[in-house]
Design a protein around this nucleic acid. Structure first.
Lengths: 200, 200
DNA sequence: TGCCACTTGACACTGAGTGCCAGTTTGCGG
DNA sequence: CCGCAAACTGGCACTCAGTGTCAAGTGGCA
């Protein structure tokens, strides 16, 4: 990595770190971009060169994580069920979350207190959902019916994952995220009919 | 309804209508609140008395619809399965969407072209999800395990609904939304194992 | 060393959203 | 029908997010 690149990474990290500290201290809404920039010793204009919006700085590693997820889905053994590939990739992600528990929980605290950040978060979820749909079969050469089913499944799965993540957050990350995740997959795999006993 | 109330409703409708027309014409981002206010013959300040944000004016009937959904869920025959109640309430909503097809599709066009509106839309979805979770069993007196299951189910259901709505939008509202909705429910009821044949 | 490309800071500007107050309109009791 | 309190509106000033532009600075590389 060249010096220029190192400096850029440093600036970026500095901004993200300063922002996170300030947000944790006073809350997302009560911190201005000017303050973040000042705390990181750069100009306000520079902040917006590194992050498109004030919300984005809450998730400085979003692309990296999504990219890793995509790579994981590509590098699966040939013949493995797509649904199973997604499950395994998400399990790896769950481990990643648990490893960075403190940071993830802090980010979540910020997400919850501000509608703007929640909205940004939701937009990220849409990207995850599209990625999963593509992996489950929403690709150009697949039959239309399969693609629909893939999109439908990805939507339901994303919804379930969001729900179990919320459970995990609610328990301050004390529960086992991999177990929770398996619950979500079981629900999607076998349906709610087991206990709900859908009438008619 | 008193004169004052009628006038308020009129102002609100005027703003919503003017906004929708302008958005359809030039796109959400290219229209300023000043222009909407001018088109509706009120001051900019008054706009923000009726709508909290520029995004909100895209969905002027959000509270009404959600309220009606809640009422529907309350007025179900005693003993009916909660899951079934939700299904029927959503089916009624689907009919409502099909009846107002043109308007709904126009709103969707606006939603799609602007990230800010999508984000606002996602925030509304969270409210729907919470409502469904409450109806499925996320209530104070229910056992914790049931509440969790309710939240999980509501999350998955909301995800599936969002996905089938997108299918409907993609087909310009030509498909039968009730049939699509049933697909989502079937997926949630019986799971994906039927065709996906999940391998261990 | 010197040049080119990349990066940064400063400034100005637009537009969303809010607080405040003064002026107007409406509902309502006398 | 009158007048008053409450509700509503318009206008103004202000904060802050985000963008375009340009000049100055800094690193990469021949």
């Amino acid at each position: 990595m060249t010096l220029r690149e190192r400096k850029k990474a440093q600036t970026r990290d500095g901004l993200a770190e300063a922002a996170l500290r300030l947000f944790a201290d006073r809350g997302f809404e009560k911190v201005t971009v000017d303050e973040i920039a000042a705390a990181a010793d750069v100009s306000r204009r520079t902040f917006f060169r590194y992050f498109p919006t004030k919300e984005a700085v809450v998730f400085p590693d979003r692309e990296r994580r999504l990219r890793r997820f995509r790579e994981m889905l590509v590098d699966r053994p040939h013949g493995e069920e797509p649904f199973e590939s997604v499950r395994l990739a998400l399990m790896a992600l769950a481990r990643d979350y648990e490893k960075n528990r403190a940071r993830v929980l802090l980010q979540q605290r910020i997400v919850e207190e501000s509608a703007a950040v929640r909205a940004y978060d939701a937009e990220l979820d849409r990207q995850w959902e599209r990625t999963m749909a593509a992996s489950l079969g929403d690709v150009d050469r697949a039959p239309a019916a399969d693609r629909r089913r893939a999109r439908l499944g990805a939507g339901a799965l994303m919804g379930a994952i969001r729900a179990i993540l919320n459970e995990w957050y609610a328990g301050a990350g004390a529960g086992d995220l991999k177990v929770l995740g398996q619950e979500a997959f079981d629900l999607l795999t076998y349906g709610m009919s087991v206990t709900t006993n859908d009438s008619k």
